[in-house]
């Protein structure tokens, strides 16, 4: 087993009914690597991301994260719920629509994973949760309910909630797509800091400038296949494939990240 490859995906296939969403996908993410997945909607990038923590169960191929590997195919049995849960506990995921738990305060949201999944004592979990909230700049919002927060704050809480599980890998599923433009910067800043701290990350994003700045590899997908991949700057600045060029022409590719909020 490789020390340097954190995520290894081989020959991954997934169909929804007759719609083949992923066709023979291979993907490697180095330990501490940051990979950006870009592509038009319906290209399969979100499905690929969801296959990494098996929120979507592939039809064929294999998925390895860290030391745990699952193979899929017509004659292999699906992993049982306990094995799946244990596997997912080692990967953090951040969703487009935050998916915070509305019946809990932000502190309780962040404590939920450690307490319920890791069976951590409440006092220890609270300490950990407060530290994670402080890390995303929201220590003072601990006792508020998600409904009272802005979109950017909600997403930062969602990141803190995922980090409280102390995952090896973080998956971001269009984490800024549901945000008002002026709130995008505060979330991207948290993600950028996480990347610079050496977290292994896979990011599905439409923020091309951010991907260029933060990701070390970039993968362009269309219609369920990887069309082009390589070092992020190289692919964005001089795409080789016509499809990549056509897609990237819709975006500003360079420029500074949106400014952070003063709270950070």
């Amino acid at each position: 087993m490789s020390d340097t490859t954190k995520i290894e995906i081989r020959a991954l296939r997934k169909s929804f009914g007759s719609n083949e969403v992923l066709k023979n996908i291979n993907l490697d993410v180095a330990k501490g690597g940051v990979v950006a997945l870009i592509g038009p909607s319906g290209s399969g990038k979100s499905t690929l991301l969801r296959c990494i923590n098996l929120l979507v169960v592939p039809d064929g191929g294999s998925v390895r994260v860290g030391d745990t590997r699952f193979a899929f195919g017509a004659d292999t049995r699906l992993p049982d719920v306990k094995a799946l849960a244990k596997f997912r506990a080692t990967t953090g995921m951040v969703f487009q629509h935050f998916n915070l738990f509305p019946h809990m305060t932000t502190l309780q949201n962040v404590m939920e994973g450690p307490v319920t999944v890791r069976r951590m004592a409440k006092a220890d979990a609270e300490k950990l949760a407060r530290a994670q909230l402080a890390k995303v700049g929201l220590a003072e919002k601990a006792d508020q309910y998600p409904a009272t927060l802005s979109g950017g704050q909600k997403q930062r809480v969602a990141i803190a909630r995922a980090l409280a599980m102390e995952p090896d890998v973080m998956l971001f599923d269009e984490a800024t797509s549901a945000l008002d433009p002026e709130l995008v910067g505060e979330v991207l800043n948290v993600m950028q800091r996480l990347a610079s701290e050496g977290m292994t990350m896979v990011i599905v994003t439409h923020e091309i400038a951010f991907a260029r700045e933060v990701a070390d590899r970039l993968i362009f997908m269309r219609d369920g296949v990887v069309v082009e991949e390589g070092p992020a700057r190289q692919v964005i600045d001089s795409p080789q494939e016509a499809a990549t060029r056509a897609f990237l022409s819709h975006f500003h590719r360079t420029g500074a990240l949106p400014p952070a909020t003063p709270a950070l």
Partner: peptide, 27 residues
């Protein structure tokens, strides 16, 4: 209850029954 809620529970590593008890049923 929005499917994203049980997905968020699953992503944290909850079993289906844990996410039903802690996340879905209370709401």
């Amino acid at each position: 209850i929005d499917k994203g809620q049980s997905e968020a529970g699953a992503a944290l590593g909850m079993t289906p029954s844990q996410s039903m008890r802690r996340i879905v049923l209370p709401q």
